[in-house]
């Protein structure tokens, strides 16, 4: 009786887990033509659990519309199950003052198992020089 209950519980747990499991397989050019301008980044992890779940692969930037900075951060889900996060970009000017703007808002993102996704933002002010990406776990 006890082993039957244990088996049922294990089966239910497995079913529940597999229900959330959708890993992503990818294929891309072996020698990429893209030559992104990578940014040396500084990472501050205050939520170790989240840090173990979501990794930052790279940060690159470019200039759009002549004088506006655009940054792109590539994130990776380090686990096999779907992961919901929220992220927000913030910009500061040369004096370290916040620039604000419509792009400074929390946005949701769902990453499938082991998926790599890029999130990006464009500074709406030419005064914006530095950025911070904040990431928190989703609901």
């Amino acid at each position: 009786m006890k082993s039957l209950a244990l088996f049922a519980a294990s089966a239910a747990l497995l079913l529940a887990l597999t229900g959330c499991q959708t890993n992503v397989n990818t294929v891309s050019r072996a020698e990429p033509l893209a030559r992104p301008t990578l940014v040396n980044d500084k990472r501050i992890v205050t939520d170790r659990t989240l840090g173990d779940l979501i990794g930052v692969v790279s940060v690159n930037e470019t200039i759009v519309s002549g004088n506006l900075r655009k940054v792109q951060v590539t994130l990776e889900n380090l686990r096999d199950n779907n992961r919901e996060i929220r992220y927000r970009f913030e910009w500061v000017d040369q004096d370290g003052m916040g620039v604000g703007g419509v792009s400074e808002l929390w946005l949701p993102l769902v990453l499938a198992g082991r998926e790599t996704r890029s999130v990006s933002t464009v500074a709406t002010s030419p005064r914006a020089v530095d950025f911070t990406l904040k990431i928190v776990e989703g609901k």
């Binding site: 655009k70 808002l105 946005l107 709406t124």
Partner: peptide, 30 residues
């Protein structure tokens, strides 16, 4: 428009307007 805002299925919420505007601006400027 933050993460604590109410999400409804029968109307465009403030966070929806924000997200749409942000995407449009990023696209236009890029």
């Amino acid at each position: 428009g933050g993460a604590s805002t109410v999400v409804t299925l029968d109307q465009i919420n403030i966070q929806d307007w924000n997200r749409a505007a942000d995407a449009m601006v990023a696209s236009l400027l890029s």
